[in-house]
Amino acid sequence: MSTPLKEAVRDLPLPAIGEPVIEVHNLTKRYGRNIVHQHLNLDIRRGEIVTIVGGSGAGKTTLVRQILGLEKPSSGSIRMFGEDLATVGAEDMRLMRTRTGMLFQHGALFSSLTVFDNIAQPVRELGKVPADLLRDIVMLKLEMVGLPCKHASKMPAALSGGMVKRVGLARAIVLEPELLFLDEPTAGLDPRSSDEVVDLISTLHRALGLTVVLVTHDLDAMVALSTRVAVLAERRVLIAAPVEEVAGVDDPFVREYFLGMRGRRALQALPPERRAKLPRAALAPAFGSMGGGPC
């Protein structure tokens, strides 16, 4: 599904990489005796798309929840937009959250609300907004994510999986955030719908100058979108770098995840100038039987 927005921003440059908007320093997170993160460090700079990957139980969602202020670290610090989350007051935290948007894995739409009301909900939470202005805001966001206005009156149960993701994205950007968090945005979609969502994320990143934090197992989406990839392993960020550099790290998880057949196939779709920087193992034939590689 093409959108007018995609055509409008086709020739625009990618957002310039700027100052850090998220700074995680020496983070440790414990649940009883279970240590999820230990001395973890990660910076995310304005304009980047940073993908967080890691094995099951590596703490990807836990890290995002701490960055969003939904959980507190056991020790260490997290700064967002230059503010230490441990010392930010409730009102300032509420305002800070209006500068962020979140797309949940399965859309997390309110099943009892229409598409219009789902998208309008964050605006209504801020206070009274004139009905005509609210309608204009919601319809603009629907247009930006490539959905005709006729879908505004539908209930979530009447939507396809790809449409649910688009409505979730419209709600995530309705307050014009600077920072967008995406949790498995292509999960459960067929290949065509997955490609369309990846294309939409890329378009919104370029159009709105967003900083994006992406959690995904989708190797194709990771390679297509990421400025850098942050690998969670051994309770810390093992490396945060462009994917062609990450693929060369001598680590068991990296080898399994990036250099299996599916990983190699995704990496070999990189542009030639980036593909030339891949380790030799990533350039081995990636087509044939579907055995090997991560699921």
Rank of each mutant, 00 (worst) to 15 (best):
L68G: 06
I49W: 08
R255L: 09
S194R: 15
R79N: 00
D132W: 12
A187C: 05
V115G: 02
R265F: 15
A269L: 07
G76P: 06
G292V: 01
L180M: 12
L40M: 09
L159Y: 00
L147F: 02
V50N: 04
S75V: 11
R97W: 14
L12C: 07
G162N: 08
P294G: 14
E178K: 09
T28P: 03
V237H: 09
V213F: 09
V9M: 09
D117C: 05
S56N: 14
L40S: 08
L182K: 13
E273F: 10
A158R: 03
R10P: 03
V229W: 05
P285F: 04
F81L: 01
V231P: 10
P191N: 11
S56T: 14
L270I: 12
V174W: 01
L169Q: 03
I119L: 06
T211P: 03
L140P: 00
T100Q: 13
I44F: 14
A58I: 12
A241I: 00
D132N: 14
L270M: 09
D195Y: 12
L147A: 06
T203G: 09
L147T: 13
V64S: 05
L208C: 07
M155I: 00
P252S: 02
D117Q: 06
R264F: 15
M102Q: 03
V53M: 10
T211Y: 15
L278Q: 12
G59D: 07
A282N: 10
P185G: 06
P279N: 06
V9H: 08
L68W: 05
P252K: 02
Q38M: 02
L200V: 04
V53Q: 07
A158K: 00
P148S: 09
F253S: 01
T227E: 04
S160P: 12
T3Y: 13
L103M: 14
S202V: 04
N26R: 13
V237C: 13
P122F: 03
G146Q: 08
E143R: 15
K277S: 09
T61W: 02
T28R: 01
P294R: 10
G162E: 10
M93F: 14
